[in-house]
């Protein structure tokens, strides 16, 4: 596997940091790959712009940051407008179609995932991040689905495993090849 750069961006509180950590943790602890996860956030405790970056590689990761993401998962218009230009050519963009209006761009593939409304329908808006992660893992095949699910099950708070696994699988089903 070549170096893959994955960026998650939205507002603080959407759980994108957790989604990124899950992806990196799966890569490092389950898939035997090199992984590094970094984040940037404002000084405010809630709200504000939030960004979580993950690098996955078979080789040693020298630079831990993300410059031109191969995959961009975005859940706010502000983050989309600010960061869409950095996506690599032929990169994949998974955007929350409930929150983001995209601009056409023939050089990248932009995939709508109605994660917020889907999560609301499931009764818990807070799992929108996991819906997004499911769609992204299904659409990129970046890591084995079973590993991500195993990691998800181990990492989420006790008692929420079922809900999160359901959200993950629902997200996967939202991706249309």
């Amino acid at each position: 596997m070549e170096r893959q750069e994955i960026r998650f961006a939205g507002f603080g509180g959407q759980g994108l940091l957790l989604a990124g950590i899950l992806l990196g943790k799966t890569a490092a602890l389950y898939a035997g790959k090199q992984a590094a996860q970094t984040q940037s956030y404002g000084t405010e405790a809630r709200g504000g712009a939030s960004q979580c970056n993950v690098v996955i590689d078979d080789k040693e990761i020298t630079y831990v940051g993300v410059v031109n993401p191969d995959v961009f998962v975005v859940m706010s218009q502000e983050a989309y407008d600010k960061l869409i230009g950095e996506v690599k050519e032929k990169g994949l963009v998974f955007y929350d179609s409930d929150l983001v209006k995209i601009k056409e761009n023939p050089n990248i593939r932009q995939i709508p995932i109605a994660s917020t409304s889907t999560a609301k329908d499931m009764g818990r808006q807070m799992v929108a991040n996991v819906v997004m992660l499911g769609a992204m893992v299904e659409g990129t095949k970046i890591l084995d689905v079973d590993w991500v699910k195993a990691c998800l099950k181990e990492s989420v708070p006790q008692g929420t495993e079922e809900l999160n696994l359901k959200a993950f699988d629902t997200g996967r089903s939202l991706f249309k090849p």
């Binding site: 990196g24 943790k25 490092a28 602890l29 992984a35 590094a36 996860q37 970094t38 984040q39």
Partner: peptide, 9 residues
């Protein structure tokens, strides 16, 4: 901060 906040193995 880079080392402090980077998650890795």
């Amino acid at each position: 901060e880079t080392v402090g906040h980077t998650r890795e193995l």
